[in-house]
Design a protein around this nucleic acid. Structure first.
Lengths: 140, 140
DNA sequence: CGGATAAAAGACTCTTTTATCTGATTGAAA
DNA sequence: TTTCAATCAGATAAAAGAGTCTTTTATCCG
């Protein structure tokens, strides 16, 4: 719908990491891949980006793996999305016109305004902590 | 964002057809392609789908082309989207879980509910006529 | 009527992007 | 120094998008 597979995998993985791996303990990518059924090497690349973005921290060798580099309340969904897909934008025209904006709106511009704002707010303001709270109750 | 390039092209093309081509007159795909800067053969395939779906009607030969097969108020955005991309669904989980639903919600399910409903309503209830009215005022 | 022409329809190939897989390298721990 | 696990490099596969060329069908014009 609005996320690529990479982004979906990133969010799923970070939820797993936050929940299953205690603060100071590493989570092996192999385990995450196995449990969440995400192709190992693909996941590897995605998590690397989260590491480069300072969201995760990684360790090589025995008992190595990844873990959160910050508290869940300090990680915005926005950061995760942008770490994986730097191009991601909610601004772009729904009909693909590069020149579409308030002054020069496309035929769907105004209808799309409300849902766009909703999406912007979700991505911009939701923290990993908010996501975890939701998941606690309704675990998938 | 939520539409593929094919779907965007389809919507842009049908707006063009509805606005520039008189009821009984055909619109050549070559013209549409040229004006809207959509690759000709790609557009051909997209419009074919709209024809198969009964949204457009086509004519071969000299002065051939395509035109609306129904009044704009009888063409739903939903039909256009589905004609081009039969898989399209607003139902699917934002995190890609096939088993995600009300009873078994993913961590983003509830936050996503509102924007999803908005999108569903736009796609499900907007007619080509609504789109044209918007375009009249704010022409892109 | 019959051939020339115009335009959609259809078959096929090529490119780009996204996703997946294979294997080698690096570095930490035991 | 062996082993484990992340990192890195590259190939392959699948899907979306774009391009080339042929076929079909309608109109035009003699």
């Amino acid at each position: 719908m609005i996320f690529t597979k990479s982004t979906k995998y990133a969010i799923r993985a970070i939820i797993f990491i936050a929940e299953r791996c205690e603060a100071k303990e590493n989570c092996s990518i192999r385990d995450i891949s196995g449990t969440l059924e995400i192709p190992f090497h693909f996941l590897t690349k995605i998590l690397q980006k989260l590491t480069e973005a300072g969201i995760l921290i990684s360790a090589k060798g025995t008992h190595g793996g990844v873990r959160l580099n910050r508290e869940p309340e300090d990680i915005l969904l926005k950061e995760i999305v942008h770490a994986v897909d730097s191009e991601y934008s909610t601004e772009e025209c729904i009909l693909g016109f590069p020149q579409c904006d308030e002054k020069n709106p496309c035929a769907l511009h105004y209808m799309w305004q409300e849902p766009r704002r909703y999406i912007e707010r979700i991505i911009g303001e939701t923290t990993l902590n908010d996501i975890l709270k939701n998941n606690e109750i309704h675990k998938l």
